[in-house]
């Protein structure tokens, strides 16, 4: 997620088209390829990415991380682009009239306007990523799913239950964290 979030954010900002002037001919040449890239990243499931990357990188945690980061950046980027497109245009126009550059418009306009919604969705995706990480390790990559599988094979059900409860606790903690952050942003 720490790779998917910044990557998705950058691609999402570009794909939203909010920082490119409407009359610029750059618009088509930048936005369409970015959207295509986002579609490509998310159209392939993380499990498929994992199989491909295990073939390329071996059974390493890196393969799992990249396999999750690519489709998650694609999904986040698409949602961010939509959230950014839904921001009201009046404040953005006002910032343009103060002479703000696109970068400053992102910092002072687009992000503050859409951050609460973005955060909520990012945390939801974080939950999904935790679950997906457990699944990925069923294909042999080290991880909690791998441990569950081992314990199951050894018929050590008390260990299986401990690991499942651990997963539950992880999700609850993420939920709590997300609620707290969102409240501090929206008051």
């Amino acid at each position: 997620m720490s790779i998917a979030f910044p990557l998705g954010l950058i691609l999402g900002i570009i794909a939203s088209g909010k920082i490119i002037d409407d009359d610029s001919h750059l618009k088509v040449w930048v936005i369409v390829p970015t959207r295509f890239l986002l579609a490509l990243m998310r159209s392939i499931h993380e499990l498929v990415w994992a199989v491909l990357l295990v073939a390329a990188l071996g059974l390493s945690p890196l393969a799992a991380i990249v396999a999750l980061a690519i489709p998650y950046a694609g999904i986040l980027g698409r949602i961010y682009a939509e959230l950014l497109q839904d921001t009201p245009s009046q404040p953005i126009l006002a910032l343009k009239s103060t002479g703000a550059s696109p970068f400053k418009i992102i910092c002072y306009g687009l992000l503050p306007l859409s951050l609460p919604d973005m955060l909520g969705y990012t945390f939801y995706r974080f939950e999904c990523a935790i679950r997906a990480a457990a699944i990925l390790s069923f294909i042999g990559i080290q991880g909690i799913g791998y441990q569950i599988q081992l314990s199951l094979h050894d018929l050590l059900f008390n260990q299986v239950w401990t690991l499942l409860i651990f997963l539950l606790v992880l999700i609850v903690v993420v939920d709590f964290w997300s609620g707290k952050l969102r409240r501090s942003l929206t008051e």
């Binding site: 404040p91 006002a94 009239s97 002479g99 002072y108 306007l113 609460p116």
Partner: peptide
């Protein structure tokens, strides 16, 4: 050509204010 040059010449208070409510 540059927005910042324009901003030294002319500025506007629009009817809808155009403020960022979360800041």
């Amino acid at each position: 050509k540059h927005r910042k040059t324009l901003a030294t010449l002319v500025g506007i208070v629009s009817q809808q204010y155009g403020l960022i409510p979360t800041l």
